[in-house]
Amino acid sequence: MQWLKDQGVEYEGVQAMGAGEATWHIYKGMGQAVLHDALQPQAQKLGVELLTSTTAITLHQATDGAITGVTIQSAATNETQVINTAAAILATGGYLNNPDMMQKLTHYDTRRLIPVSSGKGTGDGLRLAWQAGAQQYGTGMAMLFGGYLKDPSEPFFKYMASQMETAAGQQPLLWLNEHGERFVDEAVVYNFSYAGNALYTQNQVFSILDQGVINKMAQDGNFMGLGVYVRRGEKMTKLQAEIDAAVAANKPFIFKANTIEALATKMHLPVDQITHSIQTYNQYCDNGQDDDFGKNPEYLVKVSQGPFYGFELNVGAFCTMGGLKVTTNNEVLDTTGQPITGLYAAGNDAAGLTGDTYGPNMPGTCVGYAFYSGRNSGRHAAQYTHQQSIVSH
């Protein structure tokens, strides 16, 4: 954290995520400010050349496996060039955005996962390393974070800042599954991992909001935010307009009706079961006690004032974890557990500090490891190449 600050990164605070520890350092200006306003100018001052729209397509190795070069290719012209180098660092962000790898390496039904990343985690670095003899290690897990709206007409990350997304997918209110039944204490939203995994156990999940709770969140604020995009307790003054626009546009994730029975019909769910579930839930709200799942009475809010809204929830995912086994110097290990000389991996390509799992109560761990492992890889790669230059002379 201090090293980043020394490079010009500014922090606006440290916060928790839901019920987790306050370990997430929030940057002023977010990633744009960190990468392009602070780190990029520092790198360019040191003579670093940055290539965009360029792919690394091959790692070159000596007979003993040591790295000797990289072939790169221009996305614009398909022209290739070999860069001679004794060291290469892989930092390509995992494989969440590669459907084939997700199907082969994970157990998820990818039709239900909504990646909210930049779209560039296509597994390039992992494939290069595996082709070079690296050990495949720690794959199979995506970082789930809870309910998310699927809108094929928009980039998925766009909804991160939407009050409607936060109201539909991140509140400890009422969820019903494909049978019209409750299945969990909805306050799991206070832990992203719990929420994502709870949602994934069902074939379908719908979040049910009535006009009363929409008005309440507009006037008094939400129960739970969505990271730094929509703050916890924020007054949802844009919520009604966003909902109205989604209904008017016939978005596939939203359903509106003046009665519960009509809402159930629009969602193609059993009317009798939904009616029973909501009547039972409302009784728990009146009694101040959730006899099914023990939800905190603070979050027992009746579904009673029309119009009523149903939101189909898919499961949001930030990234994958792991793929390459590394040493504490971030050297990539081969299938026998020996370092591939000159090859390093950082961030979500490396099963390092975070392994194949994200600590749900320690927000910021993933980005913290990304910065640490990137710098650690760079330092050790520089030491190694310096030693090689001394030997060659």
Results as ranks from 00 to 15, higher is better:
residue 142 A to Q: 09
residue 192 F to S: 13
residue 152 P to R: 01
residue 319 C to Q: 14
residue 52 T to I: 13
residue 46 L to E: 11
residue 143 M to D: 10
residue 293 F to N: 04
residue 71 T to P: 05
residue 211 Q to I: 07
residue 202 Q to A: 04
residue 318 F to C: 04
residue 125 G to H: 05
residue 382 A to G: 15
residue 341 T to S: 14
residue 250 N to W: 02
residue 177 N to A: 09
residue 122 T to E: 08
residue 316 G to D: 02
residue 224 M to K: 08
residue 298 E to I: 03
residue 99 P to I: 06
residue 253 F to I: 00
residue 286 D to C: 11
residue 317 A to I: 00
residue 149 L to S: 02
residue 1 M to D: 12
residue 340 I to D: 12
residue 379 R to I: 14
residue 103 Q to M: 07
residue 234 E to H: 00
residue 260 I to P: 07
residue 200 Y to R: 07
residue 21 E to H: 07
residue 343 L to Q: 10
residue 270 P to E: 05
residue 89 I to D: 09
residue 302 K to L: 04
residue 181 E to S: 13
residue 78 N to I: 05
residue 321 M to R: 10
residue 20 G to K: 08
residue 126 L to H: 03
residue 197 N to D: 10
residue 149 L to T: 01
residue 89 I to R: 07
residue 178 E to S: 12
residue 290 D to I: 04
residue 356 D to I: 02
residue 352 G to I: 02
residue 174 L to E: 03
residue 235 K to C: 03
residue 7 Q to T: 11
residue 329 N to V: 00
residue 49 E to Q: 05
residue 333 L to K: 07
residue 112 R to S: 08
residue 92 T to D: 05
residue 130 W to Y: 14
residue 328 T to V: 11
residue 252 P to C: 08
residue 14 V to K: 12
residue 357 T to H: 11
residue 152 P to Q: 02
residue 251 K to Y: 08
residue 271 V to Y: 09
residue 206 F to G: 09
residue 331 E to K: 06
residue 64 D to E: 14
residue 381 A to G: 11
residue 113 L to D: 05
residue 236 M to W: 00
residue 188 V to H: 00
residue 160 M to L: 15
residue 257 A to G: 11
residue 150 K to R: 11
residue 342 G to S: 11
residue 286 D to N: 14
residue 185 D to Q: 02
residue 105 L to V: 09
residue 159 Y to E: 05
residue 113 L to Q: 10
residue 180 G to T: 02
residue 83 I to A: 05
residue 75 A to Q: 15
residue 379 R to L: 13
residue 392 S to R: 14
residue 353 L to D: 11
residue 284 Y to T: 05
residue 347 G to V: 00
residue 318 F to W: 09
residue 122 T to F: 01
residue 389 S to Y: 11
residue 1 M to E: 12
residue 83 I to K: 06
residue 385 T to W: 02
residue 315 V to S: 08
residue 244 D to K: 06
residue 106 T to S: 12
residue 140 G to F: 12
residue 231 R to N: 13
residue 165 E to F: 02
residue 56 A to L: 07
residue 236 M to Q: 01
residue 348 N to P: 08
residue 264 A to H: 10
residue 290 D to Y: 04
residue 185 D to Y: 02
residue 268 H to A: 14
residue 60 H to K: 15
residue 55 T to W: 08
residue 286 D to F: 12
residue 138 G to H: 11
residue 286 D to V: 14
residue 379 R to M: 14
residue 292 D to Q: 15
residue 293 F to P: 01
residue 12 E to D: 10
residue 328 T to F: 07
residue 361 N to D: 10
residue 193 S to L: 07
residue 88 A to T: 15
residue 49 E to K: 01
residue 333 L to N: 06
residue 366 C to W: 05
residue 115 P to R: 14
residue 205 V to Y: 05
residue 189 V to Y: 01
residue 375 R to N: 11
residue 388 Q to T: 05
residue 386 H to P: 00
residue 352 G to Q: 03
residue 154 E to S: 05
residue 305 Q to N: 12
residue 8 G to F: 10
residue 371 F to K: 04
residue 304 S to M: 08
residue 93 G to L: 04
residue 13 G to W: 03
residue 176 L to C: 09
residue 164 M to T: 02
residue 166 T to L: 01
residue 317 A to M: 00
residue 61 Q to V: 06
residue 331 E to H: 05
residue 381 A to N: 10
residue 307 P to C: 04
residue 194 Y to S: 14
residue 128 L to Q: 08
residue 328 T to Y: 09
residue 11 Y to P: 06
residue 156 F to L: 01
residue 101 M to G: 06
residue 218 A to S: 03
residue 107 H to D: 15
residue 286 D to T: 13
residue 62 A to R: 13
residue 192 F to A: 15
